[in-house]
């Protein structure tokens, strides 16, 4: 009987709704929705010679994207590295979240807090920390040399980029997994065991399906920012190969001259790919849930 009555007088209610809703909604429409409209518009305009935008309608930006090898390979590289990052984070994160949930309550608070700190710490700072470790005259190479082996090139490699991405995104995977596992009723595992499932079967058939919402949330939370990243590949990968984010940043900020229409088109295709990927992922995981 929690349902709201439809009967009481409504005029003052409506006024109240719009007073509460109005300011924030108008703000978001102007400073969030409208900018998206602007880049959709830009993606159909012609880049000018001085980095300006000329009001000539064209499909050329999209054509360039799908014919230029540079752009397609950047898309692939970004998506592939994001998938890999997401998968590794899931593999590392799930057992850790399980460990935290199963710890005694006093420990759990501490262990969770230790995940929250990197979660809230500046991404740039955390990426930078790896530069110190991986630098040519850095900590890890010092260790390698102390073991009598020759110095290795660790920084400015794609491997370094991957390590940096996993390091950066791991907390974003662990927290939703923890939330899902925290809600999980571990008596179900005993029930499964009682019914003859071994631990692996119980995990696959009972625990994993029950904690699927956490897996989905964590994966989405990791995947989205990773596809658009450019800081990690810039700082740890040495900007040797182009990821989507690097190209976007260049098209808008650095290249001579900047090409905003092409960048806009690229961003729009990016969003489209992302939406499709997430829909496919949701479909796949919710079916598994049934």
């Amino acid at each position: 009987m929690a349902a709201k009555s439809l009967d009481p007088p409504q005029r003052s209610d409506r006024l109240r709704t719009w007073l509460l809703l109005g300011p924030g909604l108008i703000y978001l429409l102007i400073f969030f929705a409208l900018p998206l409209v602007v880049i959709v518009l830009y993606s159909f305009l012609t880049p000018g010679p001085r980095g300006n935008v000329e009001w000539v309608f064209t499909f050329n930006n999209y054509i360039t994207l799908f014919t230029g090898d540079l752009y397609l390979s950047a898309y692939w590289r970004s998506i592939w590295s994001s998938l890999l990052t997401t998968f590794v984070c899931l593999l590392i994160g799930y057992p850790l979240a399980l460990f935290i949930v199963r710890s005694p309550p006093r420990w759990r608070v501490v262990l969770l807090f230790l995940i929250l700190i990197p979660f809230w710490t500046n991404f740039l700072v955390r990426t930078y920390a790896w530069m110190i470790i991986l630098a040519n005259n850095g900590l890890l190479n010092g260790l390698i040399q102390a073991l009598g082996m020759p110095r290795q090139t660790l920084l400015n490699t794609e491997g370094a980029t991957l390590v940096g991405l996993i390091y950066g995104e791991l907390p974003f995977m662990i927290l939703p997994l923890y939330a899902a596992l925290d809600r999980f009723d571990f008596n179900l595992m005993e029930a499964a065991a009682d019914l003859g499932a071994n631990r692996w079967q119980a995990f696959l058939r009972v625990m994993l399906p029950q904690t699927m919402p956490g897996v989905v949330a964590g994966s989405v939370l990791v995947f989205i920012p990773t596809v658009g990243q450019f800081v990690v590949s810039d700082l740890l990968g040495g900007a040797k190969v182009d990821y989507l984010g690097n190209i976007l940043q260049r098209l808008f900020q650095r290249s001579n001259p900047p090409n905003w229409p092409l960048g806009s088109a690229m961003a729009i295709v990016f969003m489209f790919v992302l939406t499709v990927a997430i829909i496919i992922y949701f479909r796949g995981t919710t079916e598994e849930d049934r």
Partner: peptide, 27 residues
């Protein structure tokens, strides 16, 4: 609809939001 609009800024890649705002202000 408002619910959806409120979730978008959380899920949208930050770089897309950044460059759309850049274009918006320039415009």
């Amino acid at each position: 609809a408002v619910d959806g609009l409120l979730y978008l800024p959380i899920v949208i890649p930050e770089i897309v939001m950044a460059l759309s705002l850049l274009a918006f202000f320039a415009f």
